[in-house]
Amino acid sequence: MDQALIIEKGIFIVAVFAITMLMAMYSTLAERKIAAWLQDRIGPNRAGKGGILQPLADGLKLFAKEEFFPNTPNKFLFVVGPAISMSMALMTSAVIPWGDRLEIFGRTVILQATDIDVALLYVFGVLSVSVYGIMIGGWASNNKFSLMSAMRASSQMISYEVAMGLSIIALLMMTGTLSLREIAAQQHGMDWNVFYQPVGFLIFLVCSFAETNRTPFDLAECEAELIGGYHTEYSSMKMGFYLFAEYASMFISSTILVVLYFGGYNYPGMDWVEANWGVNPANIIGIAVLFAKLCFFIFFYMWVRWTVPRFRYDQLMRLGWKTLIPLAIANIIITGVVILLADNA
């Protein structure tokens, strides 16, 4: 491996981390603003112009808070919980293709930290580890509410991972690859997967709500029943990490959603742009398009959060096991039949 590649990847990874952090930071502001707007309010507008410095003020406030440890024998695990949540939320970004390629100083820079051929499996693996963040945090809090919340969160995540995996299988049968880069490349122009897999997309969307613990599936932290859920005992920046991880994983899961179903960095007319304006402008527009799409999904997450009330626990389980999973299996069968017919025709 030559040095230039290491430097290139290093810069790229730092940039991706920075952008993820920035997006997560400003998602907190966006969430409060959108919540306010949907409720006919204005939202935070005092820190900076129109509230633009609010995330910094929030961060500063969290830093200034007292660092509290509950009376627990598992002090180490208590610290590990938020760390796992945060690092897992960030790790997924490694395999996401942010764009096709850029040509800088005569080098072709691939806009992806690493292009492994099992990228999708990697994403699922990391996602399933991220439940440990909540599980460990809730366990180490030595508090019945936190433990209850951790149990809810893990059973919810496990249930919805099944449906999520099944919805992806139908997509894989179509694309024939697990590499996110290839999946993105296959959806060239307007050839987006959502047009072929609308049901799969819907199931995936619902499951990603559940996986990121967003309303209507935020049973893990439902204030009315469990105080604060798994982060009841947390304070200061450890609490901040949990909250931040939620927004970071929302950002990442929106990105995966866009890459899998909404064409990633593809946009109609990209060939024309590349032919007439060159590779770099075409790909910079591509990155912008990717961000526009994923911002829409982040907005959608928030929009749903401030519309739909939280599900009851039995409703959640019924929706997961009795509705989504049968639907996903039916989707697989229909996809299989259609592919078979298309191949024979």
Binding site: A36, W37, L38, Q39, D40, R41, W303, W306
Partner: peptide, 9 residues
């Protein structure tokens, strides 16, 4: 809810 996004605050 989206209608409320555009109503007067």
């Amino acid at each position: 809810t989206i209608r409320h996004l555009f109503t007067r605050k």
